[in-house]
């Protein structure tokens, strides 16, 4: 399992694309929104939590189809399915690798973009915290969607259609944490719910995803 994690990380670093691309996309969103909305700081500060969360979510979505599609094409997925590690574990490790190369960099870069969007400094900590807790759920849910569509030739668009509705609760609670935190309100409830979604997704969705992969391989 550790070997699989190392391999996926090494591939992500060497192939370049996935990693930098998500971050660049996130940056673009943060630059384009003020251009579209107008430069007024108060308005930007108000919508910043939502924009940053939506941006992170879309950036995450970009690289989802690579989680299993590349391994499916070159036959690795067949071989992993017959290997002595459980397929559920393969899914969990690949989701973790995806988070390490997309979710984690997005979380770390978020404060910089928050400056562009005029988010009050009091919200920075909440932004990083909510992304750190919430983005793993995005990777696991995304891995489930990728498992459903792995056998399809052009599954990318369908993958977005399947995954985005599943992202709704994570988005709502994540952005709510930042909004409340910035306003100095209580954040315990949305934070706990966000953590619950991440933990429950990480615990249960690998089973559903592994079942979907087995169906797709037959």
């Amino acid at each position: 399992m550790i070997a699989l994690l190392i391999r996926d990380l090494r591939l992500a670093v060497r192939a370049g694309g996935g990693f930098g691309l998500g971050l660049a996309f996130f940056l673009l969103v943060a630059v384009l929104v003020p251009l579209g909305v107008g430069p007024e700081g108060r308005v930007l500060a108000m919508i910043a939590p939502g924009i940053l969360w939506v941006g992170a979510l879309l950036a995450c979505l970009l690289s989802l189809d690579r989680i299993f599609a590349l391994d499916f094409e070159d036959g690795s997925l067949d071989l992993l399915a017959t290997a002595p590690i459980p397929l559920e574990g393969v899914v969990a490790v690949k989701a973790l690798a995806h988070w390490l190369v997309t979710g984690l960099p997005l979380t770390l870069a978020a404060p910089v973009l928050a400056v562009l969007l005029n988010l009050p400094v009091s919200g920075f900590g909440w932004l990083v915290l909510s992304l750190a807790i919430g983005t793993p759920a995005l990777s696991v849910i995304g891995a489930f969607g990728a498992a459903l569509t792995v056998g399809l030739k052009r599954g990318g668009l369908l993958l977005s259609l399947l995954v985005l509705p599943l992202y709704v609760p994570t988005l709502i609670f994540g952005a709510e944490v930042v909004r409340r935190g910035t306003a100095g309100l209580e954040t315990g409830t949305p934070l706990a719910l966000l953590a619950a979604i991440t933990l429950a997704s990480a615990a249960l969705l690998p089973f559903a995803a592994a079942a979907a992969i087995r169906v797709n391989l037959r």
Binding site: I2, L80, P84
Partner: peptide, 29 residues
């Protein structure tokens, strides 16, 4: 668990070296 399967696709990663590819499968097994 007793069967080693090899098909048309070799399951190789073009970005990894020969040793890295083989070490990965050795570690998995």
């Amino acid at each position: 668990e007793a069967i080693a399967y090899a098909a048309h696709a070799d399951g190789l990663k073009s970005m990894l070296t020969v040793t890295e590819n083989l070490r990965f499968w050795a570690a998995v097994h």
